[in-house]
Design a protein around this nucleic acid. Sequence first.
DNA 1: GGCAAAGTACGATGGGTCTCGTACCATAAG
DNA 2: CTTATGGTACGAGACCCATCGTACTTTGCC
Lengths: 128, 128
Amino acid sequence: MTATSAAAVRVTAAPGVGARLLAHPAREEIRIEAVLHALSDPMRLQVVRELAAAEDELTCSRIELPVSKSTTTHHFRVLRESGIVSQTYRGTAKMNGLRRDDLDTLFPGLLDAILAAANQQADRLGED
Amino acid sequence: MTATSAAAVRVTAAPGVGARLLAHPAREEIRIEAVLHALSDPMRLQVVRELAAAEDELTCSRIELPVSKSTTTHHFRVLRESGIVSQTYRGTAKMNGLRRDDLDTLFPGLLDAILAAANQQADRLGED
DNA sequence: GGCAAAGTACGATGGGTCTCGTACCATAAG
DNA sequence: CTTATGGTACGAGACCCATCGTACTTTGCC
């Protein structure tokens, strides 16, 4: 992979109100290898499927994964740093949204094809 | 990944003529996670791009990668075991072909979307 | 202020995986 | 048979990554 790593920077001093900000790669910085790598993990693929099904922002805790809280944090960070989801704080919660526009512009049809593939495989095998 | 590993079995005692055979996953055994993982490596993505561009079977050595011979063997094995390419021996050479039919049947549009994404990114950045 | 909720940071651990070199095997050609 | 070609097997090294637990921070509410 030999990936970017630039996205790991934390923004400490916030602008306006002092809200915590999270670093996201710009659209042009999104790499197909990083996207495919992020989605090759079953947990993260599951997250993205649920996010796509919800068609709305969800908090981290709304998406239940069979792993610990810190592992969940890890997976969401990978998704954000690869450019697949955008995250914003809202109170104590963190909202997660698919970056559909960016992904569809950059890689037309990719996200839909992967989601369709994942859904098809899920019901071909014994369900979710 | 916690992947299959069943595909690693070597066929030693050959049938008919004694030709060396290679184990391939059946169509139904191909997993989207394994496919995405295989294609998330730059070398392997490059191999698949060239294979798609050739639209014909190629030997391993026709696809030049900036890695050693044994590493090349490794990458082709990952591609075969994930169900992306089929490999057959022909003389001393090994022919590689994209499993387009299987992939398109299982995951419609996926391969084309990934190839288009990779090609788009390649000329968006400083070429290949 | 005090407390609960939602995440984060950090370090550890166990297991992949990308890379290599060297030795080896199978096939084809001389 | 000998040699060259094309690829494999094996082991090693370095790094990456999914997972966890514990301690901590931030925010909202009472």
